Amino acid sequence: MWPAIAILAFVTLQRLAELALARSNTARLLAAGAREFAPGHYPLIVGVHASWLTALWWLAPGRPIHWPLLALFALLQLGRIWVIRTLGPRWTTRIIVLPGAPLVTGGPFRFVSHPNYLVVIGEIAVLPLVFGLWQVAAVFTLLNAAVLFVRIRAENAALAGPASAR
């Protein structure tokens, strides 16, 4: 039971720390003249992620751990860190655009437009599978896909410029 609790505690603390960083970065960006786009879908993202973590806390303790999948999850965390470090003070959990700031094209953004979402897709699928919870992986992968469909369209519009972001 303890390995599952340790893994879930790590992920929970990581998410809480990231929310604090995102709040700080968001406040700093808004103070510098940035604008938030499409805030209406944000509660859906929070709801999906909080429900996913809650389901794991409820179902995972006491289940066997699939260690190779845990190693894959650890690799996804390296991807998460790479994205956050690349975006630096521009990383948030919301769609915040600073007028005149160039798009970030370094780090993982050299390869894909939305690397953070690829990491999140992997995390939502892989962590439940670490505990053999394929049903949780399936349900939350579908819910996440629906939210990301809305999110990526809104983010692409916001990044394309003010006329298309309305």
Rank of each mutant, 00 (worst) to 15 (best):
V104K: 08
R90Y: 11
R90N: 11
P89N: 08
V97H: 00
V104L: 13
P108L: 06
I81K: 03
I96P: 01
W82V: 01
R85Y: 08
P89I: 09
I95H: 07
F109R: 03
F109L: 10
T105A: 13
R94M: 09
R90P: 02
I81A: 10
P89V: 05
R85L: 15
V97A: 08
R110M: 11
L98I: 05
V112C: 11
T92Y: 02
G107P: 12
I84Y: 01
P99K: 14
V83F: 14
T92A: 09
I84A: 02
R110W: 15
V112Q: 14
A101Y: 14
L87A: 12
L103I: 14
P89D: 06
G88C: 01
L87E: 13
W82I: 01
L103Q: 15
P108M: 14
R80N: 04
P99S: 10
R80Y: 13
R90A: 09
G107T: 08
R90S: 10
T93M: 14
V104T: 11
R80P: 01
W91G: 04
G106D: 14
I96H: 03
L87V: 13
W91Q: 07
R94Y: 08
I84P: 00
P89S: 06
V104G: 01
T93D: 08
R85E: 13
I81Q: 06
V83R: 03
T92S: 04
G100I: 10
L98A: 04
R110H: 13
G106F: 05
R85I: 04
P89H: 13
T86Y: 03
G79T: 07
W91I: 10
T92F: 01
T92C: 02
R90V: 12
I95A: 03
L87N: 04
T86M: 09
T86N: 02
G88H: 02
I84D: 01
I96S: 02
G106A: 15
P99D: 11
R110V: 12
P89A: 03
T86E: 02
F109C: 05
I84V: 09
P108I: 09
F109E: 03
L103H: 15
T93Q: 14
V104E: 15
L98S: 09
V104I: 14
P99Y: 08
I84F: 02
F109V: 07
I95L: 06
G106W: 11
